[in-house]
Nucleic acid binder design. Structure first.
Lengths: 185, 185
DNA sequence: ACAACCATGTAAGCGGTTACATGATTCA
DNA sequence: TGAATCATGTAACCGCTTACATGGTTGT
């Protein structure tokens, strides 16, 4: 039972869902592909944590709908009282930055601009998720409160990222304009 | 050649270093264990990207010092012109949050407090790294400029994290104080 | 004595990505 | 006709973690 398994179990405490739908719903909080999710669901079914039924559809392909069992809920509750792990920092941009001196500042400018675009798309993504939440989500008693606070975390992180990109660009511009000025004198 | 390999190559363009030292230097930017780094260095040596020599020490165990070769520098330069990948978001706390409704708000309060402590230790860590950089690091022309901006990114991210934790605690407190007030009436 | 730090390695196993494989429906 | 979305699976491979393994020095 890895972390992703518990996340899927958690989503299934809300609604009966298909593997495909779970993949889409877990994406904003934990990046996972269908090839990882389907085997996990099968194994949890074998272990009696989930029950499943096939639902026939006419307009779309048939799907397998999963539901949590009591045993699954118990497993989830046990997890709640274990320590929460902290995320490992592993961003390629960091490594690019620490060895950018082997090349020129133009490539660095492009990395920062691309990253700013990415942060902006992330910001729009989390804002859209927040907009789609029911109004009651802002109340700590709501079942959507968790989504509300993690999506807000997403927007805050994205905003900080954008801010950082602007800051780096500002430093670069100031430096190279100054150099340009001294050269023309 | 994975991302970590290029990061090690980049660090080695500055100084000749041992595997142990590289492990310590890469940690702030890319979390990696010695068991992953040593085999990578061996393979890069076999591929002619690095050269190595053993240095005898009297007070400490002997160490193997690595240096980048011209072929290694070329490999690093090629990498500089490939697209930068974006980090995958995978934080256990997010998954805990989205299924916290199966349990009580007390456990959630503990997760947030623990995470705030972690962010605070991260902040102190990056501030210490910044303090140890030479003054010239703030100049985009300095070889330490990359370190300066990524460590600053670390402090900004940590500060945002702390802010978020306070915000969540504020929401929780307001809600449960209000509930307490209505109950005593 | 014991812990902490320095220093280097190997092996097993898990988590995640990429690619392979199939197939229906809808829309441009 | 071709691309996009829905839908489910398997197999190979890579990256990273955990554990195993060794051994010297320094400080409490």
């Amino acid at each position: 039972m890895n972390i992703l398994s518990y996340g899927l179990l958690g989503l299934l405490t809300r609604d009966e869902s298909s593997g495909y739908d779970l993949m889409l719903r877990i994406q904003p909080h934990w990046q996972a592909k269908h090839s990882q999710i389907y085997p996990i669901l099968s194994r949890m079914e074998d272990d009696g944590l989930l029950s499943a039924r096939w639902v026939e559809q006419t307009d779309k392909p048939d799907k397998k709908m999963y539901r949590v069992t009591d045993k699954g809920i118990q497993k989830l509750l046990d997890w709640m009282y274990t320590p929460v792990s902290t995320p490992a920092l592993r961003d390629e941009l960091n490594l690019r930055m620490i060895c950018f001196q082997v090349t020129n500042p133009i490539v660095m400018k492009r990395w920062v601009d691309e990253r700013r675009d990415w942060f902006e798309s992330r910001l729009a993504y989390y804002e859209a998720l927040l907009a789609n939440l029911p109004e009651e989500a802002v109340q700590p008693g709501s079942p959507y409160f968790g989504e509300y606070i993690v999506n807000t975390k997403g927007t805050m992180t994205a905003k900080t990222g954008i801010e950082w990109c602007h800051w780096v660009n500002g430093l670069m511009n100031a430096h190279y304009q100054e150099r340009e000025a001294t050269r023309t004198h």
